[in-house]
Simulated assay, not measured.
Amino acid sequence: MTQHPTPDERRPANRGPKAAAGNRAALVTAAREVYAEHGLDAPLSLIARRAGVGQGVLYRHFPDREAMAAAILEENVVEIERAAAAEGATLAGVLGVLTWHQAQSAAFIGLLHAPGAFGRFHSHGFSRSLGERVERALRESLPEGHRLGAQDARDLMLAVAMVSGAVTGATAEEREQRALDAWRLLGIEVGPVRPFEG
């Protein structure tokens, strides 16, 4: 005799294409967490499990490790651009968002510390493009005559690279404190350290 599963035992209905955006968002969130804990070489299967999806779903959205990392770095940069473009944006506020990303992402630190050095993307100009976009967003936030823009066009990103080089520690809280200490030593005010909410 064949036993049929009771309604409580049945697998959830396949939502198909309707689930795509939610699955992608869950994968990006999971990848941020996993990369923060284990670095960019963490198994993609761990990301899929953390997101609550199968590996097939992960590969539909991100065909390889580089695509996953690129999506996360792109989102980091977009948040900084949005913070800079927000009404009433200040350099301190944008630096707060930048610092939050520095504390959360080793890959992002690598991108800022040595633009062009995020090797997997170097041949495509990917890291250079992202670094330039971060610089543009920060420059848009610089007040007229600010010392990071007044003397030498390279000073702004040199300061960002110096702070990125100081961001070390086992936890996001430790990395955030190191970044804030470095900005303080440079005499630069940083607003609340948080993701952009706007």
Rank of each mutant, 00 (worst) to 15 (best):
G191A: 05
E135K: 03
P63N: 05
E144M: 03
G88D: 14
A69W: 02
P5V: 02
K18H: 13
Q151T: 07
A137D: 04
R65Q: 11
E197H: 07
L58T: 10
R10F: 00
G54W: 01
F108Q: 08
A84M: 04
E189L: 07
A21Q: 10
S45H: 12
T99S: 15
R194N: 13
Q102S: 07
L27C: 04
S141Y: 15
G145C: 04
G119H: 04
Q151F: 08
P63H: 06
G96E: 11
L142W: 09
E79M: 07
A71W: 00
G22I: 07
T6F: 07
A161D: 03
Q104Y: 07
R60V: 04
L111W: 07
V28Q: 09
V160M: 10
A103Q: 11
A30N: 10
S45E: 14
A19W: 12
E33Q: 13
A170S: 14
A83R: 01
V193D: 08
A36Q: 12
S164R: 01
E33L: 11
T90D: 14
G16H: 11
W183S: 11
G198C: 06
N23P: 01
V77R: 12
L185Y: 03
M157P: 01
E140Y: 12
S105Q: 12
E81W: 06
L112F: 00
A150F: 12
V190K: 09
G116E: 15
L58G: 05
A20L: 09
A31P: 02
E74Y: 00
H4C: 05
I47D: 00
N14A: 10
E144K: 11
T168D: 14
R10T: 10
A85H: 14
G96C: 09
R147E: 02
S164H: 01
F62G: 03
L44I: 11
V28N: 02
T2N: 09
A106L: 14
L95K: 05
G88S: 10
D181T: 10
V190C: 09
A85C: 10
P143H: 05
A83E: 15
G165R: 10
L73T: 04
A159R: 02
L91E: 11
E9W: 00
Q104F: 06
H124R: 14
E197K: 03
R10A: 15
G169S: 08
